[in-house]
Amino acid sequence: MIKLDGITSFVAIAESGSISEAARRLRLSKSVVSERLAELERSLGAGLLHRTTRKLTLTEDGTAFLERASRIVQEIEEAAADMAERRGTISGPLRISAPVTFGRMHLGPALYPFLADHPNLQLTLDLDDRRVDAAADGYDAVVRNGPIADSRLMAWRLAPSRRVLVASPAYLREHGRPASIEDLEQHKGIFYTNRGVADWRFPTSAGTVLVRGRMGFGVNNGDMLRDAAVSGLGIALVPMFVVGEAIASGQLETIDIGVQPELEYIHIAHPDGRRPSVKLRAMADHLRKAFGTPPYWDPTFPT
């Protein structure tokens, strides 16, 4: 008899590319996952994976079986979600990825009371500033700031995310305060490198204007981006959820050059083709209320 836990283990291994990563996702020991895979192969009478010292690859039989196995796992998950919705309960595992700075400063504090209200929910939150692949990396959803370029994701808006140009008072005293796009081009920039290029974009009536300041510092983390600006290394274009407190305390000052960056949003996105679970929908609703409109980190947000 083919057991469901063997199918679940096989799908996790195929998606993650390793038994160790599959075991981490399933919260099982590596030996248990290996045994479940072996038992599944014995039941099917076929090998599903080629095993080498460096990687695992699907056999021809494994490739053919994976498509239906994935559908089986998804159907079971959706059936369980339906049952939970019928009972009005929020329970079971949920795996989310989010950016480090937003997760530390705002997502975590918003989630703690939600988890306290739903003690049967088993949430795993992975903080990572890289753009993870939600489906391939085994996430139920990802939280992101900015546009969602991946067409395989279905996104819900959680809160608006206004970005502002900022610099330290000391930097502005020494180098002057830019008042136009042309002025801005002469200043040192502190750039968030996960956006891929060292530039800033501003929508105008004549189209989008691209500004490339002189590289002063590049980093792939919001906390360090803010701290570099506070240290006087240059001008940064940063979301208000990162710099709101530093502006309020006087550590940073906002800069008005006559045009505003394009408004962005905090999203939560789940893989397309999967029905979002009741627990994911409930968490998204809670986060919208916790962040507010306008969001609490940006009390001067224009309405």
Rank of each mutant, 00 (worst) to 15 (best):
L4A: 11
S9H: 04
V11L: 04
A12I: 00
A12V: 00
A14K: 03
E15K: 08
I19K: 15
S20P: 03
E21H: 02
E21D: 14
L26N: 13
L26C: 11
R27L: 11
L28G: 02
L28D: 07
V33E: 01
E35L: 12
L37N: 09
E39L: 12
L40H: 02
L44K: 09
G45P: 00
A46E: 12
A46T: 05
A46C: 04
T52D: 14
T53L: 12
T59D: 00
F65S: 00
L66Q: 01
E67V: 14
I72S: 08
I72M: 13
E75T: 09
A79Q: 15
A79I: 07
A84W: 06
A84M: 14
G88N: 10
L94A: 07
I96F: 03
A98F: 06
F102C: 10
R104S: 12
L107D: 00
G108Q: 14
P109K: 09
P113C: 09
L115G: 11
D117H: 13
L127T: 08
R131L: 09
V132A: 09
D133I: 06
D137K: 04
I148V: 15
A149Y: 12
A149Q: 11
W156K: 11
L158W: 05
R163C: 02
V166H: 01
S168I: 11
Y171W: 10
R177A: 07
Q186F: 09
I190G: 03
F191E: 02
Y192M: 06
N194D: 02
D199F: 08
D199T: 06
F202R: 12
F202H: 12
T204G: 10
S205D: 14
A206E: 15
A206S: 15
V211K: 05
V211M: 06
R214G: 05
G216P: 06
F217S: 08
G222I: 00
A228R: 12
L233A: 10
V238I: 15
P239E: 05
G244A: 15
E245D: 15
I247R: 06
G258V: 07
P261L: 05
Y265S: 03
H270Y: 15
R274C: 08
V278Y: 01
L280N: 01
L280W: 03
R281K: 15
M283C: 02
K289W: 04
A290K: 14
G292D: 05
T293D: 14
P294F: 15
P295S: 11
W297S: 03
D298Q: 09
P299D: 11
P299H: 13
P302T: 14
